Amino acid sequence: MDKTHDWWAETPSHDTSPTWYPTPPPPPKSAQRPAPPRRRTWPTLTVITALAVAIAGVWKTAADDKRERNRAEQAATYKGVSATDLTIDGITVETLASWEKDGRSATLSAWADADTKQKLIRITSSGKTAEEETHPPKKNQSPMPIPMPTHLEVTVPTKDRYQPVRLKVTVSSSHHQPTTREIEFRPDRTATDTATGKHLPQHH
């Protein structure tokens, strides 16, 4: 008998070791999962910047409108002068503030009636001072035929003709220590005592 037989008919081997299969190679880099794209922040920053500019523009417009309204109100009430009387240590002092039309300065002044009492009157504003001291006639000295009133004046710089100005008035008689009051004058013909906040009547 012919011993030739087909190869698939051969009896399998009794080898019990596990069958080895080759490990597949890793996929090429081009086939790997791509990294997620970066988020674009430029459009967001542009929108935020545009909103900030718009808001700033609205605020500026509102501030400009308010400034214009204030200017209009100031112009409507502008008088360019303010005057009030003060009584300090029994002495009446007339005070006045007047603003130049160009808005660069204001002149502050004070008057006191002439008498035979010894007194000191001083005014101060923005570092500028003027004062006058009077003395009664000495013994055996004839009094002045025409007593002269006290008149003091200082001029101070201003940013514009609507700027308030302050004046310190100091008065001292022969029997008292100097007493000082500070007044804030406004060009709408008003004056305020800075210590009390009280509005002072205008001198006409």
Rank of each mutant, 00 (worst) to 15 (best):
G57E: 03
I123G: 02
M148Q: 14
E131G: 04
R104F: 01
A97P: 07
A52D: 03
E132Y: 07
L120I: 05
K159W: 12
T49A: 12
A130T: 00
A75I: 12
G80C: 06
P136H: 00
Q74T: 02
E133K: 15
E153C: 03
I55H: 02
I91T: 15
R161V: 14
P147L: 13
R69L: 05
W111T: 00
T77C: 07
P145N: 07
L96F: 12
A110G: 12
A50Y: 04
N70L: 13
V81E: 10
S126E: 15
T150A: 02
A130L: 11
V165T: 08
T87W: 02
T92C: 03
L152P: 03
A50C: 09
H135S: 02
I88M: 05
A114E: 08
L51A: 09
I48P: 03
E132I: 11
D64M: 11
V165N: 05
R104M: 04
T107M: 02
A50M: 15
R161S: 07
V81G: 09
T129D: 10
G103Q: 05
S105Q: 07
P164W: 10
S82R: 11
V93L: 08
G127W: 12
Q74E: 13
R161P: 01
D160Y: 12
E153V: 07
K159S: 09
I123Y: 04
V53H: 13
L108C: 00
R67H: 14
I123H: 03
E132W: 11
V156Y: 05
E132R: 05
E68M: 09
D115P: 02
R161L: 04
A62F: 06
K128P: 03
Y78M: 13
D65H: 10
W59L: 12
P147W: 12
T155V: 01
Y78K: 07
E132F: 09
K79I: 12
D160R: 05
S105P: 08
D89A: 10
A114L: 08
R69C: 01
A97C: 09
A54H: 06
P136N: 01
A52P: 05
Q74M: 13
L108F: 00
E73C: 12
V81F: 06
I146S: 14
I55W: 03
H151C: 00
E100G: 10
I146Y: 14
A76L: 12
I146R: 09
T150L: 08
K101C: 01
W99A: 01
S98M: 11
V53I: 09
T87M: 06
I48E: 12
D65E: 15
P149Y: 04
T95E: 11
I121E: 01
Q74P: 14
N140H: 03
G103I: 10
A63M: 07
W99C: 04
A76F: 07
A114H: 11
K139H: 07
E100F: 06
A106I: 00
W99Y: 07
T134L: 00
R67C: 09
P164L: 10
E131S: 14
G103V: 05
Q141S: 12
A112P: 00
T129Q: 08
R67S: 15
N70P: 00
A130K: 04
